[in-house]
């Protein structure tokens, strides 16, 4: 059986083709999906999405969203997503440092919420950029 993965963001389609296996960071921890998975719907956290194509692993930085798995079709709706190959590691590292500085300066409930979200996004991008594809 083949497994189809479709990663959608409001702007564009990030991924739409056949895969062997994926590892998805959901709100209740990471799950691996192989063909013939039971149909589930899950919220997706800000984190890495790992895709296996034959023997190659690819990494996508996924900024939260929603996933629906069923009938060997995976649909992931993301706020934003970036392939690890499209991320510049140095730029991501700088963005992370800026985000950390912003969080330490944040005052009030609202700024803390914003800064925390930004920090998590920046951290995910750095992780994705540094992930080795094996």
């Amino acid at each position: 059986m083949t497994l189809n993965l479709c990663v959608l963001t409001p702007n564009r389609i990030i991924w739409d083709s056949e895969v062997k296996e994926i590892i998805l960071s959901t709100n209740s921890g990471q799950i691996g999906v192989l063909p013939n998975h039971a149909p589930i719907a899950t919220a997706v956290d800000i984190g890495l999405l790992r895709i296996r194509l034959n023997d190659q692993w690819l990494t996508v930085a996924l900024m939260g969203g929603f996933a629906r798995i069923g009938n060997n079709e995976i649909t992931i709706l993301g706020n934003d997503a970036e392939m690890s190959t499209d991320i510049d590691p140095q730029e991501a590292q700088q963005a992370l440092e800026i985000a950390e500085a912003n969080l330490s300066r944040a005052e009030g409930k609202r700024q803390v919420i914003e800064a925390n979200l930004a920090l998590r996004r920046a951290r995910t991008r750095v992780e994705a950029a540094n992930a080795i594809s094996y």
């Binding site: 709100n27 209740s28 039971a38 149909p39 589930i40 719907a41 899950t42 919220a43 929603f66 629906r68």
Partner: peptide, 14 residues
Amino acid sequence: LQFEQDPVQILDAL
């Protein structure tokens, strides 16, 4: 179809 999390959490994501 099963919900992996609470419906509230799913809506929170959607």
